[in-house]
């Protein structure tokens, strides 16, 4: 059974000009020990999905449909209190800016032990031991000495490690990491990536890695879900999606990432920009930027096609067309 199972999730924002649907019919699941990368442009709805899972959608945003299951238990519409318990005991959250996740008034040791004691029956000394063990696990040198330091005494990379230690306090089965490396320097970014990978492998934590950086996904994730304008457009094993992207958006995205040693004067790019939520076109949301549209693309939203391969899902009418043609050919 998957640790996290999201099915047909929709998130909307009621405004006075009508309801904006930010995420539409999104389904994905993450197994224990697996890292699922969720990638998309800013405003695509990737962070909203992560926030919905942990019940931290900012009002007036709300889940308008679908279910979120954690280890089989439906947590979609839990009360705030119940959600807080689930968040504390089973889900660890890592945000982009480590400074906002830590309380500047308390030592990191105190923040860690507090969190541990809230959710676990341990003595004060036991909690301290556990906190120190966690700090060394996330790669903080001399954790006994750093235990009584305040957040401002840490560098950016070390702070993000502390945040990860906090997320790990209660042995979560799921970690939601929202742009965990974006605010960090490249050399530190690589260290945090390695740490996330280690946690998934050694502790069997299911991880949802939300980021805009395909490079980070390529190095970290097992599978990747590509989101465009609130809809899942392609999902599959990282290597498959990166090496042979099948949705025109994914293809364009992969092409437009500059690569070392490419030596091109002009980069391939996708014209235009992602539509705003209130101006999403009818049919496939990518149709204004797509170079190979069919009539259908302007009228109907393409469904996620799973017929070809259970592991690979693509929402594009072109591919459905090709399948059909193949089938006719066989017949």
């Amino acid at each position: 059974m998957a640790v996290l199972d999201i099915s047909d999730l929709s998130i909307e924002f009621p405004t006075r000009r009508g309801i904006l649907s930010a995420v539409e019919g999104l389904s994905l699941s993450i197994e224990a020990g697996e890292i699922l990368g969720v990638v998309g442009e800013s405003g695509a709805g990737k962070s909203l999905t992560g926030n919905a899972v942990v019940g931290l959608l900012e009002p007036p945003g709300r889940v308008s449909g679908g279910t979120i299951r954690l280890n089989g238990e439906d947590i979609t519409h839990l009360s705030e209190n119940a959600m807080r318990r689930v968040r504390g005991a089973q889900i660890g959250v890592i945000f982009q800016d480590p400074l906002t996740s830590l309380d500047p008034l308390y030592t990191i040791g105190r923040q860690l032990t507090q969190t541990i004691l809230t959710h676990q029956k341990l003595s004060a000394a036991g909690a301290r031991d556990k906190a120190i063990q966690l700090l060394s696990e996330v790669g903080i040198p001399a954790p006994e000495r750093r235990f009584d330091a305040y957040p401002h005494e840490f560098s950016g990379g070390m702070r993000q490690r502390v945040v990860i230690a906090l997320a790990l306090c209660c042995d979560p089965c799921l970690i939601i990491a929202d742009e965990p490396t974006t605010a960090l320097d490249v050399s530190v970014q690589a260290q945090i990536i390695d740490l996330l990978k280690k946690l998934a492998r050694e502790k069997g934590v299911a991880t949802m890695l939300v980021t805009h950086d395909m490079g980070v996904i390529a190095e970290t994730a097992d599978r990747v879900a590509v989101i465009y304008s609130g809809r899942l457009v392609e999902m599959g094993k990282v290597r498959d999606v990166i090496d042979t992207p099948r949705h025109p958006y994914t293809r364009g995205l992969m092409d437009s990432i500059p690569q070392i040693g490419q030596n091109l004067r002009t980069l391939p790019n996708i014209e235009g920009a992602m539509p705003r939520l209130n101006a999403r076109p009818e049919g496939c949301a990518f149709n204004p930027r797509c170079t190979q549209t069919l009539d259908r693309c302007f009228r109907h939203v393409p469904p996620l096609d799973t017929t070809a391969d259970e592991q690979r899902q693509v929402a594009c009418w072109l591919l459905t067309e090709q399948e059909n043609r193949k089938e006719t050919a066989y017949a």
Partner: peptide, 19 residues
């Protein structure tokens, strides 16, 4: 060595420390 690689190479040397 730190550039995240789309090819997902895994034989990256370990990087330590910060600025």
């Amino acid at each position: 060595a730190t550039v995240p690689d789309l090819q997902g190479k895994s034989n990256r040397p370990t990087i330590t420390g910060e600025v």
